[in-house]
Structure formats: structure tokens, C-alpha cells
């Protein structure tokens, strides 16, 4: 599993390490992870090989049949694509935006900073169902403020039904999702910024460095290792976007906002109101497992690529 390349740590504490203590210290977290993350994960792999509605005792082993069916399921691939849009567009948007806000709010001179941070954080905890309602007004064609701005700026002639148009709905949802979770990424960045010793800034200021130079030569280099983690975490959140999408559009109109988690949920649970029919937990699990694996593979490829480029750059410098 591990792809970390062997790399010698410059600081070596291992001479005092007592392996027994190390293992003992890992135990609680490992138990929690094993019980509540890995066991359910393994079970969902098991479910992915059966034909099962999730409740009856009628469970039929079907091997890879669910996966085979998935390969030709257009709705699944469309949802797959939408989740990739969420990751590829939503991640940079949020990571860069949150970094800028975090840098501004990290300034000690800004006395109101705690209040501003709290405000940027507030959407994170606002109930998704209620956000869904507010957004129907904000994006709505009936007196919605967004449309009023766009019309008054002559960007559009007539109000656009952003949530009712299958071309724009996904962007409206993506923007809302970015807005709502912006505060989490901001916290990550703020935490990372704490690791830049204030003394560096003071020293640099004594040397007469400007704000931009400070940012470029002190802040960003220190943040770089965190950037990878923050990008991964944000990408992961975008990958698993669910509650807000379900509350805002439930995947509609005509599947245009059906991201992968919504697809999985609707396959696993929701009964069809017109045609009847039982849910397909096995098939939904297969979709989840396949998508998760694909995402992992993509992330690994990306990670290797980044590593290669940075190594090449280093070699060029040397």
C-alpha cells in the first residue's frame, strides 16, 4: 500500500524509541479505524459481489456481475464525470481562495480577525437542508439577487433558471458546495500558517523585505508540504459531496447534478415512486468500491507525477 519512498529523516529520534510503547500508542486509533472505517469498508467490498436489496435474507453471490453491469451503466459514468468536475474545478477554487483569505486573516494587525474567521466558518455549520432553500432564492429566476445583478450588468437578457437548466445547475451546486465548505479549508491553511515562526517575519522585516517578498520567500515555502495534504483533503471532500447536493437538487434536473455519492445513495436506498422496484445495495456498493479505487489510482498517478517533476526540478537546479 505504502508508496512513500525511502527517505532518511534528518533528525533521528529512534534511539530512544521503545517499539512496545509505539505500538501501544497506536492501538486506540487503530482499533477505532479498524472497527468504524476498515471493517465497514471490507463489508462494502463483500456487498459489491452480491445481489442484495439490503434487508431480506435473499442474498445471492454474483461475483463480478455488478462490476460488469457498471461498466455499461451510462448514469454511473455520467455521475463519475461530474464528481471529477467537482474535484478538478472545486479543489483549486477552494484551496487557492481559502489560502488567500487565510493569509489575510492571519495578519496579527487585523484585530477583527477572529470575528472574520468565524464568519467565513459559519456556512460550514449551517444546516444543509436550509441552505438548499436559501439557494433556490439566490439562484432563482424569480427576483433572485444573482439574476438581478447579471441582468443589470447586461450579462444576460432575461433571468436564467440556474438550478433548472441542466447546463448551469452543476455549477450552481459546485459554487454553493465550495462556499459552504470554504471554512474547513481555511482552518487547514490557518493551522498551517501557524507553523511559520513569527520570528522569521520579524527578522525579514528588519531586513526591509516587502509584503510580497515575505509571502514568496517565507510563507509559501513553509506552506508547501501542507499544500499537498490540504489539496488531498479538499479533493477528497469534493469527491464525497453529498448532503448539500441532495438537499439542493437531489441530483436533478435530469441527473445534471447527480454526483457519485448521490448516485450511490439513490441506487442503494431510494425506492422509485412510479415503477416500484426494490433497492440494489449490492450494485450500489460496487459503484462505490469501483469509484473509490479509481479515485485512489488517479491520486497515486498524480502523486507520482508530482514527485517526478519536483525531482527533475531539483536535478535541474543542481
Amino acid at each position: 500500500m505504502s508508496v512513500t519512498q525511502p527517505r532518511r529523516s534528518s533528525r533521528d529520534w529512534s534511539r530512544f524509541a521503545t517499539p512496545a510503547w509505539c505500538y501501544a500508542f497506536m492501538l486506540p486509533a487503530l482499533v477505532l479505524a479498524a472497527l468504524f472505517t476498515f471493517y465497514p469498508m471490507v463489508m462494502s467490498w463483500v456487498y459489491s459481489t452480491v445481489d442484495w436489496n439490503g434487508f431480506s435474507s435473499d442474498i445471492e453471490f454474483v461475483g463480478l456481475a455488478n462490476y460488469r453491469e457498471l461498466m455499461s451503466d451510462g448514469l454511473f459514468w455520467d455521475a463519475f464525470g461530474r464528481s471529477l468536475i467537482f474535484v478538478l474545478v472545486g479543489t483549486p477554487l477552494r484551496v487557492i481562495g481559502a489560502l488567500l483569505v487565510a493569509i489575510v486573516l492571519n495578519q496579527q494587525a487585523l484585530k477583527l480577525s477572529p470575528a472574520f474567521r468565524t464568519m467565513f466558518f459559519m456556512p460550514v455549520v449551517t444546516t444543509a437542508a436550509i441552505v438548499g432553500i436559501v439557494m433556490t432564492f439566490i439562484f432563482g429566476p424569480y427576483g433572485g439577487p444573482l439574476n438581478e445583478v447579471l441582468v443589470s450588468l447586461d450579462v444576460v437578457d432575461a433571468p436564467v433558471d440556474f438550478l433548472g437548466d441542466s447546463d448551469t445547475a452543476i455549477w450552481a451546486v459546485l459554487l454553493t458546495h465550495t462556499w459552504k465548505n470554504f471554512g474547513i479549508t481555511m482552518i487547514y491553511w490557518l493551522a498551517a500558517l501557524q507553523t511559520v515562526p513569527q520570528s522569521y517575519y520579524e527578522a525579514a522585516k528588519v531586513d526591509g523585505a516587502g509584503a510580497f517578498a515575505l509571502l514568496r520567500h517565507i510563507t509559501l515555502p513553509v506552506l508547501l508540504p501542507f499544500a499537498v495534504v490540504i489539496i488531498v483533503l479538499t479533493a477528497n471532500e469534493n469527491l464525497h459531496a453529498f448532503a448539500l447536493v441532495q438537499a439542493m437538487t437531489a441530483g436533478g434536473p435530469f441527473f445534471s447534478t447527480q454526483v457519485i455519492e448521490v448516485y450511490i445513495y439513490q441506487t442503494a436506498f431510494a425506492a422509485d415512486a412510479t415503477g416500484g422496484g426494490v433497492p440494489r445495495l449490492g450494485y450500489a456498493s460496487a459503484a462505490g468500491c469501483f469509484f473509490g479505487t479509481a479515485a485512489l489510482v488517479l491520486a497515486l498517478i498524480q502523486g507520482i507525477a508530482v514527485r517526478q517533476t519536483s525531482r527533475m526540478r531539483k536535478q535541474l537546479k543542481a
Partner: peptide, 12 residues
Amino acid sequence: VEAQTIKPDFNE
């Protein structure tokens, strides 16, 4: 008991 869910449904 055997009925399968059909997607897209009529509403969709």
C-alpha cells in the same frame, strides 16, 4: 418482490 427499479423513471 422481484421487481427491479427502472432508471430513469418517468419523473426524470
